[in-house]
Amino acid sequence: MPLWTIHHTPGIFTGEEKHRLASRITDHYEKIGLPRFYVVALFHEIQPEDMYFGGEPTPAGVRITIDHIARHNVDQESRRRTAQWVNGMLRPHLEEKAGLHWEFSVDETSEDLWMINGLVPPPGGSDVERQWAKDNAVSPY
């Protein structure tokens, strides 16, 4: 499961922009074989007096944490590609906003600590995972 937690100050994203970004994120993961329902994007609006960068309140800021559970990068080069992909996905949504401070990080969490609807997800790339992706739903296996 990729979990994107997006903290932002007011006015950064409209409802439509949130939907477009969440869809774009999901489309990418689907292309690499993940079921769409694995992808979660959470938008949390934070007041400027509750978001600090460098010890100062931030009038326009975005901080994104991405948790990868279903797939992990195998080496430094793949981690760099992932960071560049995330950067490229976010830039069109964020770079044109004047005075915006934005950053992200990606964590890789053990899939041993992950369940969906009480089930351990099937191994990545397995026939069962492909069936889940086709059905876009969890099913016992």
Rank of each mutant, 00 (worst) to 15 (best):
I12V: 15
V128N: 01
L113A: 05
E111A: 13
E103I: 11
G118A: 06
M115Y: 02
M89W: 03
F13P: 06
I69M: 06
V128D: 05
R63W: 08
H19V: 13
T109I: 15
G124R: 15
L90E: 03
H93K: 01
F43W: 03
L42E: 04
P121G: 05
I69L: 04
A133Y: 04
V39E: 00
D67L: 04
D107Q: 09
R130C: 07
G55E: 04
Y52K: 04
H101W: 10
G99T: 06
L34Q: 11
H93N: 05
P35G: 07
H7K: 06
E103Q: 14
R36V: 07
D127T: 09
G124L: 14
Q131F: 08
T65R: 08
I6M: 07
H44N: 14
P123L: 11
G118L: 07
A22Q: 09
A60L: 10
I46K: 04
V39A: 02
R80S: 07
P122G: 11
P10G: 11
E96P: 02
D127P: 10
A133H: 06
I66E: 05
T82Y: 08
A70M: 13
V40F: 06
G125N: 12
A98Y: 04
G118Y: 07
V120Q: 13
H72Q: 15
P121W: 02
F53W: 10
L90N: 02
A137K: 14
V128F: 01
Q47Y: 02
H72T: 13
T109L: 13
K18V: 03
T109G: 00
P59T: 10
E111P: 05
V138A: 07
M51G: 01
P122C: 12
E56G: 05
E56S: 15
V62N: 08
Q131S: 13
R91E: 11
T5A: 04
W85E: 04
S105C: 15
P57H: 12
N73Y: 00
E17F: 02
